[in-house]
């Protein structure tokens, strides 16, 4: 993994790295990527993926999940509580830097 690749991935992840971090992380992540590449050698033809143990691939738990709760209104987080942890709030909302002209 080279620095250009790390810079691209960091940009996707909205991480701004210093030059030192870029260099160090390129080397460290390169080693981990090389290690996880051992998975290439495993034959997975006809093997379905597992995204979640409660679903698919013959899961015995599949019948035990009920992903939807009844569609009934109930009180949620109060407006002031929701804003209380915001680093910046204004006019009853979260405040962000300008992003449209």
């Amino acid at each position: 993994m080279d620095r250009a690749q790390i810079r691209h991935v960091a940009s996707l992840a909205e991480l701004e790295l210093t030059d030192d971090e870029e260099e160090r992380l390129a080397a460290e992540i390169g080693r981990v990527v090389a290690y996880v590449s051992e998975l290439d050698a495993i034959d997975t033809s006809d093997v379905p993926p597992t995204a979640h143990v409660t679903a698919g691939a013959g899961s015995s738990l599949e019948a035990l999940v009920s992903p939807l709760r009844p569609d009934e209104p109930e009180p949620g987080l109060a407006h002031d509580d929701a804003l209380a942890g915001a680093p910046r709030a204004a006019h009853g909302g979260f405040s962000v830097p300008t992003f449209v002209e």
């Binding site: 790390i6 960091a10 996707l12 909205e14 991480l15 790295l17 460290e28 992540i29 981990v32 990527v33």
Partner: peptide, 18 residues
């Protein structure tokens, strides 16, 4: 995100994004 996350978290976010 650069200031808030430590080195291990950055490593994992970058690996996961990759």
């Amino acid at each position: 995100r650069d200031a808030g996350f430590g080195p291990e978290v950055k490593r994992r976010i970058l690996l996961g994004t990759f």
